[in-house]
Amino acid sequence: MRLSQCWIVASKDLATITKRRNILYSTFVVPFIIAFMFPLLIRYIIEKGTAASALSYLLPSFEFFFFILAGLIPSTIASYSIVGEKVEKSLEPLLATPTTDSEILVGKSIAAILPALGAILSASVVFMGLTDAVTAGKLGYYYFPNWGAALVFLLLVPLGTVMSVEWSVLISSRVSDVRIAQQLGSLLILPFAGIYVAGELNLVQLGDTGTLLIIAGALALVDLLFLYVVQAAFRREEILTRWK
C-alpha cells in the first residue's frame, strides 16, 4: 500500500468537506458545545453543594460522553465521502486510476477520521481545562489529566472513531442517499450509549482503568472484524456491479 496515494485521496476529500458547511458544523460544533456545556453544568452542581466524593464519581461519566461522540461525529463525513461519490457517479473514474481499492478505502477513512478525531480531542482539551478550573477549588487538586481520561481520549475515542467510519462505509455501500447513510450510520452510538448507561447503573466502572482497557480490547476486536467485512465490500467489481 502506497501512503502517498492514500493521502491524495484523503486530501481531495478533505478539500471537498471544507466546501460543505453543514458537514463542518456537525463535525466541530457539537463537541465544542459539550466541551463548554459540561463544565457549566458541573459548576452548577458544585454550587448546589454536591460533595467532592460525588464529583469524582460524576466526572468519568462526563468524559465518557466524548466516546459516544466518537460513534457519531465521523459518520457524517464518512457517509458523505462514499455516498457523495455514488451520487456524483465519480467512483468509476476514480477506480480506473492506478490506485488500489485499499488505498482508496484508507484515504477515505483518513479523511473521515482526522477531522472527527481533531474536533473531539481538541474539544476534550477545552473540557478538561474548564472542568479543572471549576472543580479544583472543591476537590483541592486538578482532576485532569488522569489515566482514566487518557484511556478514554487516546484509546477509546480513536477506536470508536475507526469503528464509526467502518460502519458508515458498510452502510454507504447499501444506500444511495447521504442523509439515510448518515442516519443509519449514527445508529452505532446505541452500543456506545449502552456502555454509558451500564456505567450509570453501576454495572461497569467507567472510572476504572481495568474496565476501560477491557472495553478498548473489545472495540479493537470489533474494529478488526469490521475491517475484514469492509475490505470485502470495498472491491471495485462489487462497487461497480453490486452497490446500489
Binding site: 481531495k12 471537498t16 456524483e88
Partner: peptide, 23 residues
C-alpha cells in the same frame, strides 16, 4: 465513462489536478 463523474464542489483545475496526482 458514460457518466462524467466530476467532483462538483471542486473547480475544473482541482478536478484535473487530483487525477493527475493519482496517476
Amino acid at each position: 465513462p458514460d457518466n462524467v463523474g466530476l467532483y462538483e464542489a471542486l473547480s475544473a483545475y482541482k478536478n484535473l489536478d487530483f487525477y493527475g496526482r493519482l496517476y
